[in-house]
Write a protein that binds this DNA or RNA. Sequence first.
DNA 1: CCATATACCTGGCAGC
DNA 2: TGCTGCCAGGTATATG
Length: 271
Amino acid sequence: MPELPEVEVTRQSFAHRIAGARILSLRMGKPLRWPLGVDPQALAQRQVQAVRRRGKYLLVDLDEGLLLIHLGMSGSLNFAPVQGPSGPHDHMDLVTSQGVLRLHDPRRFGAVVWAHSQDAPEAVKLLGHLGVEPLGDAFDLHAFQAGLKRRRSPIKQVLLAGDVVVGVGNIYASEALFLAGIRPTTQAAKLSGPRIAKLHAAIRDVLTRAVAKGGSSLRDFVSAEGNTGYFQLEAAVYGRKGLSCRVCATPVKQIMQGQRSTFFCPTCQKY
DNA sequence: CCATATACCTGGCAGC
DNA sequence: TGCTGCCAGGTATATG
């Protein structure tokens, strides 16, 4: 479910409502990807200051320390005024003076990790190697080009790796490459300058539009307000194997790259 | 340093 | 209806 747009939409949906709240208690359910790393009781009385995003991680800043939350493949957050009955897939309830932040994550690839600061080892392990934010000013074309030049892997896999640019997941990688007219199998280092410029713009474009539309409607995405996402400009290629390309009517192809599905139009994506 | 495979876990769906 | 196998939005980690 969650790539950068879904995580950002989630953040926006509850950040302003939880800011300033006091933590009353924290209940953890089944184990997630990593242990919390602190006694939940130690978080009582901490105050939430802000909710930021780094790549696909949400950073809940406290007056002392921070919580790093990742939604994995199937996670979603809900922020409700009161704590309702929890189901078998609700694995975190952060009860605050202003509402309850609940993590719902059937597959439990998600994580909630406490760190004393963003420079603490637990945080650096998760965030330290991340690439540039694609929607920020630091997403510079020349730096992007330099990053791609050193990679011999297929461009699709370089985008997914997240150490050149963060936030582009399996759906938006296929979508951005379609917009840029790039074959997903092309080695990153072999892309021309102009193609990289198109890709740079395409990544910003597709992610920005997806955020504006409230995330993708694929499967089960819901924001913390409970709204189902909707991607009004439907996917151009993702999930459309065998269907006609929306631009040229050629059937969309599906291939596997690094155990992940990739979709592309063999006519529109030749470079 | 880079590239690739693996592991984690559950639910939904196609096919029989 | 029920079973089996495959697939799914991510990414740290191990291995070459």
